[in-house]
Write a protein that binds this DNA or RNA. Structure first.
Lengths: 329, 329
DNA sequence: CTGTTAGCGCTTTCAG
DNA sequence: CTGAAAGCGCTAACAG
């Protein structure tokens, strides 16, 4: 295969370059014979049009910039995978970046997206550090996984997820509660508020803090071990973790210390990834496919300017998948 | 931020467009004062050059096409992640595709890469189905993870990996051996040959076949369960699996049937991913970073035409990471 | 229905 | 040292 241009195809098929363009783009009003001649040449030599030129000319790249914060968590991998296939169905490619929760890298990614002429951006924010700059970008942006007023956004209702976990623990007669997570977030607030509504108080000393920088199993495990070493005795019989990695490491850590799951402590994870499936850990399920389809629709509608630019937030419903890490009554 | 062009920057800075171009590309011989004026304007308005135009003009996109076969296996995720960051250090972006082990999708990806003007391609082949067409592509191609004579390639020595597993089992006094994998490959040959060299014969009835289409834990588990149901009794005390997903599912399946790992059976997985780390399964380690750096170097050298085009194959050394799924003597 | 032509934003020669 | 101008491959308006 050689790199060819429409000009050369035109010469081979003995037509003008614009006719080649018309045929390739399926414009009607081309003589069937000519069209066939062009197609034959194209198939024979394996021609594909230069998308850089199309992008330049049409001011549209059919690329969507996607920026996630990590790939260590299989949840994001599934998200990316689904984004890619949904985008492909719409004729779009994905330009993928990983900000690694670093706002500097996040902004670099945004600049790269603009430079590469992406038609729109889907991203998982690192923080609110770049919110203002990102919201001023000259192309449509949708944030995903959590909702933010500053952007069009599609996300799970994390507050409700916290409620779900708390309710489950309350209904199964737990009286003491713990959490594992980074800084307290909506999941925490939902969890805490629901406990409060039912007459319980969440004790902050039962919050196991995982450092923001603890981005792999090993580091998460360290943070948990540090906590366990410090408290000597676990003062709760139920724990909600803000992702499955944390749930897995928590279960392994306590089991190593002779604490039984779920007999001594019930665990509910978050994301319902392969990890919780593999380890039999109960987890809050995220409807990834629905989330991605909604996100893509929202974005493509803005790209095609079919809708007003008023910011919309879409919250999706969490569900709890029960496995053997949480007791049944 | 508005989308601007060099022309507009030029007007704002009161210079010609070519001067803007020179400044941005760091060409020397531009008056410092002018350069500063241009930089000031650029920083003020947040201008980034249009890469589609650069690509068109320079016939170089600074994009590398990457096509993997799956992302379900965390090994590939780590591979992609590493590829992305190494590429970024060289000033390249990654255009990622997932062939899902489907040769049709694989070829579509290649066409898309050409169309998007990528400067080179790194891929994990689905099969030899597209080998001829791919080797005729007008840009440098490197295959990764396994070596193939048809391409520049960088991969682990899978034959040696099989040897390693076999030797370990022999040294720890196993007399009977099993494998879990798709169709027999180099890993199998290395495993089988090493057994033979030591007076053992690999029994094909001890080969648990995982269907090519069994691309997730659940399906892999099904294939293993089918085998276990069929044989009633496991006729081996050691088993080598061709990836960690299979190792994990095998361990869970036999443990559910009351068979103890490693007391009753030793298990060695492959890839040394988060999965084997999490589950404490011994596994053949792949030096991903070394593999990626070598691959990228090989590819960039061809892109920059600094070297002859003779196909090179680079085989990397496997190592065995021992955990608690294989007995020590 | 088909060909000619302008121009997308940039880099790079060529003149000055 | 700086500006003017050509041209990368394509699409689309226009002419015929």
């Amino acid at each position: 295969m050689k790199k060819l241009t429409m000009k050369e195809i035109a010469k081979l098929a003995n037509v003008s370059q614009s006719t080649v363009s018309r045929v390739i783009n399926g414009k009607e009003g081309v003589n069937e014979k000519l069209a066939k001649r062009v197609f034959d040449v194209i198939n024979e030599v394996g021609f594909v049009p230069n998308k850089a030129a199309q992008t330049l000319k049409q001011n549209q790249s059919y690329i969507i910039g996607v920026c996630v914060t990590e790939t260590y968590n299989p949840y994001f991998v599934e998200l990316i995978d689904t984004l890619e296939s949904v985008a492909r169905n719409y004729g779009y490619n994905i330009l993928l970046h990983n900000s690694k929760r670093n706002p500097i890298l996040e902004w670099e990614s945004m600049e790269n997206f603009i430079s590469r002429q992406v038609d729109g951006i889907i991203f998982v924010p690192t923080s609110d550090y770049n919110f203002e700059k990102i919201s001023k970008l000259p192309i449509p942006v949708v944030s995903v996984t959590q909702t933010h007023e500053e952007f069009h956004s599609v996300g799970l209702d994390h507050y409700k997820a916290g409620q779900l976990a708390a309710k489950k623990f309350i209904y199964t007669n737990h009286k003491t509660f713990g959490m594992v997570g980074n800084i307290p977030d909506d999941k925490f607030f939902g969890f805490r508020d629901t406990l409060a509504e039912n007459g319980f108080t969440f004790q902050m000393k039962n919050y196991i803090t995982i450092k923001e920088t603890s981005s792999n199993s090993y580091l998460i495990r360290q943070d948990i071990e540090d906590y366990l070493d410090r408290v000597t005795n676990l003062e709760f019989t139920s724990v909600f973790t803000t992702n499955d990695l944390m749930a897995v490491e928590f279960v392994k850590a306590v089991e190593d210390r002779g604490i039984k799951v779920p007999e001594d402590i019930s665990v509910i994870g978050f994301d319902d990834t392969i990890l919780s499936k593999m380890m039999g850990i109960s987890s809050i399920h995220q409807p990834i496919e629905e989330m991605v389809k909604t996100t893509m629709k929202l974005l493509l509608d803005r790209i095609e300017k079919k809708v007003s630019s008023k910011k919309v937030q879409i919250k999706l419903e969490p569900t709890l998948i029960e496995r053997k890490s949480s007791r049944l009554k």
